[in-house]
Write a protein that binds this DNA or RNA. Structure first.
Length: 240
DNA sequence: CCCTGATTCGC
DNA sequence: GCGAATCAGG
């Protein structure tokens, strides 16, 4: 098999989504080895990924004792400082952190007085939802030990407004329409006339909307129990 | 051992 | 350009 545009695109997408070379190779199937994937990725200039090896070269191994133990579904790639208002349902697993917020019961002023007694079940105000926030593929953003701070701002438990797709989006979201707030999940295939992007509002902190985050970031199962190659969002049958 | 990505180097 | 072989850290 050769590297067709589609396969390259799959490789890129998956690589940037933080998939491992093995997974990508597996997904591409058809006699593509892990090495082939890595080799290709590098030739494509898709570097920048935390590699187990090649951590340091000289000095500066001081602090940062690798707070990230295992490779996990990576976080989002480039988006700028996330001022995210943590949404209730990040479909993703992999709780990374953010419990520190001690129960700081700030009485909500006005509005419907949240009488809710500290029941056992209901979690009225901002549940410390784990937003995947580790070292991204690019090795960005990492909190210094000093600045202990929950990665996600205490979310305003306000009312969530249903994201209504704008008319523009309803039509099609082109490459030029992409920005940090728009879901970049590709629909169709590059080169095709109707190729476009999802265009939904992103799951804050992620390049995709909540729905597609569910596709892009799968709970990392032990390789053992990865029976059914999960629905391949990449390269597979047309998604539309 | 297993995993990972990086690099090398013959093709 | 490609990818197996090899290297090396976790």
């Amino acid at each position: 098999m050769s590297w067709t545009d589609e396969r390259i695109d799959t490789l890129k997408t998956m690589w940037e989504a933080g998939q491992t070379a093995s997974q990508i190779a597996e997904a591409l199937g058809q006699g593509v080895s892990r090495n082939a994937v890595i080799g290709k990725a590098h030739r494509l200039g898709l570097q920048a990924r935390p590699s187990p090896v090649r951590a340091n070269d000289s000095a500066a191994t001081a602090a940062a004792a690798a707070p990230t133990p295992a490779p996990m579904p990576a976080a989002a790639p480039p988006p700028a400082p996330v001022v995210a208002a943590a949404p209730p349902p990040p479909p993703v697993a992999a709780p990374v952190a953010a419990p520190p917020r001690a129960a700081a019961p700030e009485i909500e002023d006005e509005d419907e007085a949240e009488e809710a007694a500290p029941a056992v079940v209901a979690a009225p105000p901002a549940p410390p939802q784990p937003i995947m926030r580790s070292v991204g593929p690019g090795g960005f953003l990492r909190q210094a030990p000093g600045e202990q701070q929950p990665p996600i701002a205490p979310a305003p438990p306000r009312r969530l407004v249903p994201a209504k797709p704008s008319a523009e989006i309803a039509g099609k979201t082109s490459l030029l329409d992409l920005n940090d707030r728009i879901c970049k999940w590709p629909l169709g295939h590059p080169g095709e006339p109707d190729f476009h992007f999802c265009g939904e509002k992103v799951n804050p902190g992620f390049p995709y909307c909540v729905d597609h985050c569910g596709h892009a970031y799968q709970a990392q199962l032990p390789r053992r129990d990865r029976r059914p190659p999960p629905p391949l969002p990449f390269g597979g049958p047309r998604v539309r």
